[in-house]
Amino acid sequence: MSSDVRAAARPARRGPDGPRPASGARGPARPGGPSLGARLRRVPLLVWVFLLLPLAVELFWVFWPAANSFSLSLTRWDGISPAEPVGLQNFTDLAEDPIFRTALTNNALWVLGFGVLSVVGGLALAVALNKPGRGVGFYRSAIYLPMVVSMAVTGLFWRVMYQPGGPVNAGLEAVGLGSLQRQWLADPDVALAAILVAAVWRQVGYIMVLYLAGLKGCDATLEEAAAVDGASAWQRFWHIVMPQLRGVNTVVFAVTVIDSLRTFDIVWAMTRGGPYNTTQLLSTYMFQQAFTSGNLGYASAIAVVIFVLAIGFIITYLARQARAEEQS
């Protein structure tokens, strides 16, 4: 999702510099030409209105509640009576909360598992399906298809798959692996992995499409030249194709990290963090604390932790991005 937004935002940001018949200044404006103040003054009022309105909406609906969650995290609040300030008590409680620790570990496992599996799987599928051949279009659509259903529906669908006597267990029985049958979502040893499979099943098609687009942009003649020089298939992929996919890689990295950090719906739909909190993620634990137990202060403290983690990732990503752009 975020990549779509970014792609859409980029040309718009370039707008004022781009060719605009109205201003009379034909041709692209060169950076370092007119001063910043002069350039800002040339922006028509209408554009300012268009920029400021969303900013005001964003400030009110996103930043204001977000700032509130910071102040709420320093209180004890049940949502009804007035909030009671408790200082950093919520955070010290978090440090000693075994469920929070489980959720933190699970989140790390999730980002890692979700990221690695969907990227490796998506890339492998893209490479395999990049070659023309019989039925390639069908396979591509079939693999992308799960993406059109929401995470919550994916979760419900896989819950049926994992049921005792459901397709997964029946399938194992049919191929003689009956001993591997288990209660996938009720067994704390495998429940998180079972959810991960469902999430990756949906995500892998998306990553595949991103890489397919990247592969289409690769120069085929380079690969042919390398083949003529005697490079093996693996060498061609790793040294010729991969460097050309650098742009796609950054997008995929961002999409995957953001998607995995905000995961909530599929876990909630499949296990609600159970059995006994073993599949709890930070997001599901936060929701449970806030809306089932009514500890809005404590839940806000978890939200702050999620925010700090996410902002850490985003800043690292932006810094990398800026450095890469300077180098090129």
């Binding site: 704390p188 159970g274 059995p275 006994y276 009514g294």
Partner: peptide, 17 residues
Amino acid sequence: SDALQTTADTALTQFLA
């Protein structure tokens, strides 16, 4: 309360397992 129910859910399902 629903909050206490949550603690019971965790404890009892874990105990049963």
